[in-house]
Simulated assay, not measured.
Amino acid sequence: MTKFFLVLHVLAAIVAVGPVTVAASMFPPGARRALADPGDQRAAETLRLLHRICRVYAGLGIAVPVLGFATAMSMGVLSDAWLIASMALTGIAAAVLLALVLPRQEELLEAVEAGAGTDATTEVAATEVATATTGTTATTDVAANPRATVRLAMFTGIFNLLWATVTILMIVRPGSTTGA
């Protein structure tokens, strides 16, 4: 049963986490292109697709820790330090994805879909008006700030680095009698 859980765990990681890491990494440059040319429908469609891939596969990604936990239970390694570290890093990676990456993708996508990026002065003025009247910032704030895509790229990089670290821990398994 251990091998069965392990196979499912690895397949789930490849099928679910792989597309998220690639699509999330492709999103910031795509957003820069779409914001630079608001009339480019293809760039906007690409962003929509990349965001959808991230959302859908993030949902499917819940299978990875669930199957990993089942595998660890069947192997009797739940108290091993490498596994505890992997579970903690997985939780942090999920938090980064859900709290920092996906919401910023949505903000940038909304800015692109609203046609933002055509005139930064107008956008800043519109943001100030929206903030003064509603007390909240509008999506045009995202488009008026060129660093929005840079921050998204940074958070995406952190997410990817966390997953790479988890992968290394899963392969090397420090302190394991079967580890490399």
Rank of each mutant, 00 (worst) to 15 (best):
V142T: 08
E113H: 03
T149M: 01
A94I: 14
T177H: 12
M75K: 11
A180C: 09
L152R: 00
A31G: 11
L8H: 02
W82F: 15
G115W: 05
A24M: 10
T177M: 14
W82A: 08
D37I: 07
N160L: 04
P174H: 12
V142Y: 06
G157E: 07
T2A: 12
V101H: 00
L100M: 14
T122M: 05
V150P: 03
A58S: 15
T90C: 10
G135H: 06
P103N: 10
E45M: 12
A99W: 12
T178K: 13
G175L: 09
W163L: 13
L47D: 01
A120N: 08
G91K: 06
D80K: 14
G61T: 07
A23L: 09
T167N: 06
T167V: 15
A132P: 02
A138W: 05
V129Y: 04
A94D: 01
A93D: 04
A125Y: 04
I53E: 02
E45C: 09
L83W: 15
L100H: 06
V150G: 07
D119T: 03
T134E: 07
T165K: 02
V166C: 08
C54D: 10
R147M: 05
P146F: 04
I171K: 11
T46L: 13
E128L: 10
V166Y: 05
E113F: 02
R147A: 12
K3A: 14
S176I: 08
M73K: 15
A143Y: 00
A126E: 08
S74M: 12
L83T: 04
A132E: 11
L162Q: 02
A16F: 11
T131L: 13
Q105E: 10
P19Q: 04
G68V: 07
D80F: 13
M73H: 13
L169C: 09
L97Q: 06
G68E: 05
A16W: 07
H9F: 06
L35F: 00
E110P: 01
R151L: 10
A36Y: 13
A72T: 12
V22I: 15
I168A: 15
A116P: 00
F4Y: 11
T156A: 12
F4G: 04
Q105F: 02
F5T: 01
R32C: 00
T178A: 15
P174T: 12
W82V: 10
A58K: 02
F155L: 03
P28E: 13
L89P: 03
A143K: 00
L47E: 01
T127R: 11
A116G: 08
I171R: 08
R151F: 11
A88Q: 09
R42G: 14
G59H: 07
T165C: 07
T177S: 14
G39L: 11
A24I: 05
A31D: 03
A31F: 04
S86M: 10
L67V: 07
H9Y: 06
I92E: 03
T2D: 09
E113V: 05
V101A: 03
M73T: 13
M73G: 04
V124H: 09
A153N: 09
T122W: 06
L47C: 14
G157L: 06
L109N: 00
V17L: 14
